[in-house]
Amino acid sequence: MPQMTDERIRAGLTREEDLSLLHEVSMKTAGVSHLEMCIQCGTCGGSCPVAMDMEHTPRMLFAMLRAGMREEVLRSNTPWLCVSCYHCVVRCPQEVHIADVMYTLKGMAIQAKLYTDSTAPHFSQTFVDMVEAYGRSYEMGLASRHYLRHFPLRLPSMMPMGLGMITKGRMTITPKKIKHLDQLKSILRRAKQLELTS
């Protein structure tokens, strides 16, 4: 765990929780994140196809984590724009699990209610609700609920596409349920009580 230094105190970072942010994020990430090993080389940002739309490059975001800037990090649009293309991941000299860290940050931002644009969190939540209710995803219901809520302007241009998908039999109108939905629900109920902290 990083030590409290003069620089950190002068920079106004006095709270213990700030200093442990990097560690917290690392611990909450699925595999062994290697986040602590980031050497700030910038390879990730240079490899990222969506860097142009990001408020902070991944490198910058990781420096902010190290600096304990919890709110700024959790408000950043960066994790939400990450398309999980893993370009940065295979190029990172330190093998930081960058894409997985982005997932962790999304989860933390949702919990802290610190995201600025609700489109992505709502999409994820709608998707997950669907999966929890049926065990399968249900594209038709997902698409319509999502567009009505977030992109009503897009609906007219989406309509020929949606119609095409339906007449060509590529969108199901009724959801499919798995047989042992109760089993899945018990698993997820138990899973929600468990967290990854150590």
Binding site: K28, A30, P79, S84, D100, M102, Y103, T104, K106, G107, I110, F123, S124, Q125, F127, V128, V131, G135, R136, S137, I178, K179, H180, Q183, L184, I187, L188, R190, A191, K192, L194, E195, L196
Partner: peptide, 25 residues
């Protein structure tokens, strides 16, 4: 038999243990 959706990239960004449990089932 009776496989379930893997959660695509959506569940991973919400809650980790449920996301991985969904896949692991």
């Amino acid at each position: 038999e009776d496989w379930n959706c893997c959660g695509a990239t959506e569940y991973l960004g919400i809650n980790l243990i449920p996301a991985y449990s969904l896949i692991a089932r």
